[in-house]
Amino acid sequence: NLRWTSEAKTKLKNIPFFARSQAKARIEQLARQAEQDIVTPELVEQARLEFG
C-alpha cells in the first residue's frame, strides 16, 4: 500500500474534484512504476502535467 506525504495530499486537493479520483489512480500508478512506496509532490505534479 502506498503512503502519501502531507505535501502530496495537499497538491491532490488542488486538483478539481471531478478529476481527482482519476488523477489519484494515475499518481499511484506512476509511483508503482517508479517502484516507490511513498507518493511525493513531484509525482502529483507529474500527473497534473499529463492531465493538462
Rank of each mutant, 00 (worst) to 15 (best):
N1H: 11
R3M: 11
L12T: 02
I38N: 04
E28Q: 04
Q46M: 13
Q22A: 13
N14E: 15
G52D: 12
P16Y: 05
E7G: 10
G52M: 15
Q22W: 13
T5G: 03
F17V: 15
L43R: 02
T10L: 13
P16H: 06
E28W: 01
A8Y: 00
R32E: 05
N1V: 09
R3P: 08
E42Y: 05
E35Y: 11
N14R: 10
K24F: 07
Q22N: 09
R26T: 05
A31H: 00
R48K: 09
S6W: 09
Q46T: 07
Q22E: 10
F17P: 15
T40A: 02
I15K: 02
L2E: 01
E45L: 06
T5F: 02
R3T: 12
V39F: 00
Q29F: 10
E28H: 03
W4Y: 02
L49S: 08
V44Y: 02
R20P: 02
I27H: 00
T5P: 02
I38R: 05
K24C: 05
K13P: 02
L30G: 01
P41D: 06
A25T: 09
F17D: 14
R32W: 05
A34G: 07
E45Q: 06
P16T: 02
E50V: 08
E28G: 02
R20N: 03
I27R: 00
R48E: 09
L49W: 08
L12R: 01
E35L: 13
T40M: 04
R32N: 05
P16L: 03
N1P: 14
N14C: 15
Q22Y: 10
F17H: 15
Q36D: 04
V44A: 02
L12G: 01
A34R: 12
Q46L: 13
L2T: 03
W4E: 01
I15A: 03
K13F: 11
F17Q: 15
L30A: 04
D37H: 13
Q29C: 07
A31T: 06
T10P: 00
L30P: 00
F18W: 15
K11D: 05
V39M: 01
E35C: 13
K24M: 11
Q29A: 11
Q36G: 04
Q33V: 08
E7V: 05
F51E: 04
W4S: 01
F17W: 14
S21K: 12
A23E: 03
I27L: 02
E7P: 03
Q22F: 09
T40F: 03
Q22R: 14
L43C: 05
A23N: 02
D37Y: 13
E42H: 05
R32G: 04
A25Q: 12
Q33Y: 09
T10A: 15
W4Q: 01
L49I: 11
F51Y: 11
D37G: 09
F17K: 15
K9P: 00
L49M: 10
R48F: 14
E50T: 08
A34Y: 13
T5C: 04
R20Y: 03
T10M: 14
V44S: 01
F18L: 08
E50K: 07
A19K: 12
L12W: 08
T40Y: 05
P16W: 05
Q33E: 13
I15N: 02
R3A: 09
S6E: 15
K9F: 11
E50W: 07
S6F: 09
T10D: 15
P16K: 04
K11F: 10
A34C: 09
A8V: 01
F18E: 11
A19Q: 14
R32A: 06
K24H: 05
S21I: 13
R20Q: 09
F17G: 15
E28M: 03
W4K: 00
L43V: 04
I27C: 12
K9Y: 11
S21N: 12
L2F: 05
A19E: 14
P16F: 06
W4R: 00
L2C: 03
W4I: 00
T10G: 09
K11I: 12
F18T: 05
R3G: 06
L2Q: 02
K13S: 11
T40R: 04
A34E: 06
A19R: 11
K9M: 14
F17Y: 10
I27F: 01
A25G: 05
P16E: 04
V39N: 00
L30W: 08
E35M: 14
Q33H: 09
L49F: 09
V39K: 00
G52Y: 13
F17I: 15
L12D: 01
L49T: 08
E42L: 06
E7L: 07
N14G: 08
A8I: 01
Q29K: 08
L2H: 02
F18S: 06
S6R: 13
Q33K: 09
G52E: 15
A34D: 04
G52C: 15
L49Q: 11
A31R: 01
L2K: 02
D37A: 10
L30E: 02
K11A: 15
I27T: 06
A23L: 15
E28L: 04
R3W: 10
S21A: 15
E7D: 09
A25K: 13
V44G: 00
E50H: 09
Q46D: 04
A25L: 11
T10R: 14
P16M: 02
R20L: 07
Q33R: 10
K13Y: 10
E35S: 12
E7F: 02
A19T: 09
V44F: 07
V44T: 01
Q22S: 10
R20A: 03
A23D: 01
G52I: 15
A8G: 02
E7C: 06
T40P: 02
N14P: 01
Q33F: 08
T10K: 15
K24V: 13
T40G: 06
E50F: 07
A31K: 00
Q29Y: 09
R3D: 06
S21G: 12
S21V: 11
Q36P: 01
Q29R: 08
R3L: 12
L49G: 07
G52N: 13
L2I: 11
E42K: 06
E50C: 09
K13E: 13
I38E: 08
K11P: 01
I38F: 10
P16D: 06
T5R: 02
G52R: 13
P41G: 12
L2S: 02
N1S: 12
I27Q: 00
S21H: 11
A47N: 02
F51I: 11
T10H: 12
K13Q: 13
S6I: 10
L12S: 01
P41L: 11
R20D: 03
A31P: 00
F51T: 06
A31I: 02
N1C: 11
P41M: 08
K9D: 07
V44L: 03
P41F: 05
T5Y: 02
Q29V: 08
Q33L: 12
N14T: 13
N14I: 07
V44M: 05
N14A: 10
K11H: 11
L12H: 01
R48H: 09
E35N: 15
T5I: 03
V44P: 00
L12I: 05
L43N: 03
A47S: 05
L30Q: 03
I38A: 04
K11E: 08
D37N: 12
T40C: 03
N1Q: 13
I15Q: 02
P41I: 12
A8H: 00
L12C: 04
F18G: 07
K24Y: 06
F17C: 15
E42V: 05
R3S: 08
N14Y: 10
E35A: 13
F18K: 09
I38P: 08
L12F: 14
R3I: 13
A23I: 15
A31L: 03
A25Y: 07
I27V: 10
